[in-house]
Amino acid sequence: MRGDVQTFDLAEVTRRSLNQALHDATDGASFEVVNPRGAHAVACGITSDIDVVVRGSVGYYCAGMHQQGRVRVEGNASTGLAENIMSGEVHITGNATMSAGATGCGGLLVVGGNSGARCGISMKGVDIVVGGNVGHMSAFMAQAGNLVVCGDAAADLGDSIYEAQIFVRGDVESLGADCVEKEVRPEHLDTLGRLLAAAGAAAGGADPGDFRRYGSARRLYNFTIDDVDALAAEAAVEREVAGR
């Protein structure tokens, strides 16, 4: 935290006044939010290089569309934590429910506890590190970025995945359509090492060498289109040749 810390008590002031202050803030400012009491859309749409600490649990879309600076939540978060994050960092000490980091385009999301279903759904470049487990359909239709899971992954991991990469240290209940295990090469160990270091204590000292990598088999990228007419034409030519 840098400079003077401005405190917003959501038991006293509205979410609107908090978010407006965050949107109006200049680089370097620091904020503390107390008594969030599960409020939705806390600290969403931040555009400057500021620090925000939320002491307590938040509702949906905390730090949604985050663009710069750091948001740290000391508690749990409901659906859509850091959805569509563009850059900067969002770090939560507790658990995040569904769709954490959904459609994130960049930056870093760190979940200290577990993350529920569809963690990293449609992610587009964000890096997500989860200290615990992730729920079913995580990284569904994930397009780009890295999902690092220090615990286990529930069913249908990486279903219909594009070019995102998934790293899991524990067990994978099942892989979704078109998601396959891939070789861990030195560059992947570098990526893992960088992300685990960035996640700090949330990663629990996990070793990059303990992870397995999953990604797209790229079999669903294009439609499979038959052409029986062409085969029939070939067969007709063969019959004609044979008949001569």
Binding site: A41, Y60, G80, S99, A102, Y221, N222
Partner: peptide, 29 residues
């Protein structure tokens, strides 16, 4: 060059109660 099929359902909300919260977020942002 891929045959892209977009999602048919929003990734971070389902149903009208969620949509109310989502609209609140869009207004805040």
């Amino acid at each position: 060059g891929i045959d892209q099929r977009s999602a048919c359902r929003h990734p971070d909300w389902t149903g009208p109660d969620d949509l109310e919260i989502k609209i609140g977020e869009l207004r805040e942002i």
